[in-house]
């Protein structure tokens, strides 16, 4: 529904991709690890290899968690907006079709938080 207003009410979105200096937003959540209270927000160029996300970027964010040391990212399963998502370590974010403000979730089989608690 439109906003009720006394005159034309049209504005550009505050967060469109052109404002991020060539990069785009990507949200990532490691499911079953609520030690990290919410999904994380990254600002990455679309030519970032997915491998870099998994091997360089995520470890810096999630490395504090004791489960991280056992994570094998090649076995992780991924969702994009809640739907199964096929990844390829050798492709870039752009080649995988990831757009500005997409949200990814991944599960690491057998690793479900401290003592399996989801934390």
């Amino acid at each position: 529904m439109a906003v009720k207003a006394i005159s034309k009410y049209e504005f550009a979105p505050a967060d469109s991709v052109d404002k991020f200096h060539g990069a785009q937003l990507l949200y990532v959540c490691w499911d079953d690890h609520l030690m990290f209270c919410s999904p994380l927000a990254y600002c990455l160029p679309p030519n970032t290899p997915f491998r870099d996300l998994c091997e360089k970027i995520l470890p810096k964010s999630y490395g504090y968690h004791p489960d991280w040391a056992q994570v094998d990212m090649s076995k992780a399963t991924w969702l994009k907006s809640g739907q199964p998502f096929a990844v390829d370590m050798d492709k870039t974010l752009g080649e995988l079709g990831l757009k500005h403000k997409d949200v990814l979730r991944f599960k690491t089989p057998g690793l479900n938080g401290l003592n399996g608690s989801g934390f």
Binding site: M1, A2, V3, Y9, E10, F11, A12, P13, A14, D15, K19, F20, H21, A23, L25, A41, C43
Partner: peptide, 18 residues
């Protein structure tokens, strides 16, 4: 209900990245 309004939100995280 009012997307035109909320697309203007000043979200701190996005503003930092900008």
């Amino acid at each position: 209900d009012e997307p035109e309004k909320y697309i203007q939100a000043w979200l701190p995280v996005h503003q930092i990245y900008m």
